[in-house]
């Protein structure tokens, strides 16, 4: 950039110089300067330095973050400490054996299961015929063994301890049932699945457990009960992913 020189240092005429010099020499009176100082002394002082503002802003941000962290921690504590929701008993009640199957298809047992979709409550699966099986001794004994004032729902809620909440525990429980199924031990499978339902009343692998139960029923030869269960599972949208497997199991059943 070429720096120009002032006219006064160049070829200004005398009049031009006189005008510019008059302009440069002009200025306020001493009284005017004193008046400015007096006015400023009377005026309110300058506000806080703007350099303080970022520091104050940072302080506010820290406070807000701390408050959010405390609220978050409180929410987590509340979530972890909240009482477990009571769940209706979902353990299917399956007879230990199907002695009546041999002569001519004994009545199928009634099976209760909880739909894997949400908390809509247990979906009851009914067979074509009403259940006429005698009450199980063990089941009655367990009911009597409950302490007074305590419901079965509460009992199941208590059984669903944090230790059993992990998906790994569910997977291992079903793996054991599956191994028993592979070993053609359907009664063991049913027992293990009973245990599973007791331990995990809101288990995330309940659909898989129900299909395993269906397979176990097929192995036991209780075809009527198996068909009834299969129909109910196929009617439930939540089991659509298992439809092919359920059809395959039903195909294994001899007419």
């Amino acid at each position: 950039m070429i720096e120009l020189r002032p006219l006064l240092e160049e070829d200004a005429t005398r009049t031009e110089k006189a005008l510019l010099l008059a302009g440069r020499a002009d200025g306020p009176s001493k009284e005017a300067t004193a008046a400015v100082l007096a006015m400023l002394e009377a005026s309110p002082p300058a506000g806080p330095a703007t350099s303080v503002k970022p520091a104050r802003l940072a302080e506010w941000v820290k406070t807000a973050i701390f408050a959010v962290a405390v609220c978050g921690a409180a929410a987590v504590v509340y979530y972890l400490a909240r009482p477990q929701r009571a769940v209706p008993p979902a353990m299917p009640v399956i007879p230990k054996a199907e002695p009546a199957a041999a002569p001519g298809e004994a009545p199928a047992p009634s099976i209760d299961l909880v739909s894997p979709r949400s908390h809509e409550g247990p979906a009851t699966i009914y067979d074509e015929e009403p259940p006429r099986l005698p009450a199980r001794e063990g089941s009655a004994h367990r009911r009597r063994a409950l302490p007074p004032g305590r419901t079965r729902e509460a009992s199941h809620g208590a059984a669903d301890s944090p230790r059993d909440n992990s998906l790994g525990d569910e997977t291992r429980a079903l793996d054991r049932a599956r191994e028993a199924l592979d070993a053609h031990q359907p009664s063991t499978v049913l027992r293990l699945l009973d245990d599973y339902h007791r331990r995990f009343p809101q288990g995330r692998l309940r659909p898989e457990a129900m299909v395993l139960r269906l397979a176990a029923l097929v192995q036991t030869g209780g075809h009527k009960a198996a068909r009834s269960l299969a129909r109910q599972l196929l009617a439930d949208e939540a089991y659509q992913a298992y439809a092919a497997r359920i059809h395959s199991l039903m195909a294994e059943m001899k007419p």
Binding site: G23, D26, G27, A35, L40, A46, G47, S51
Partner: peptide
């Protein structure tokens, strides 16, 4: 001087310069 040469009347120059320094005073920081 700047105020005067920029068109502020001489009768207004003192008030105008006070206003300039008042702004500076308020925004000193």
């Amino acid at each position: 001087r700047s105020l005067r040469r920029l068109g502020v009347w001489e009768s207004d120059a003192d008030d105008a310069s006070q206003r300039v320094f008042l702004v500076a005073h308020r925004r000193l920081n």
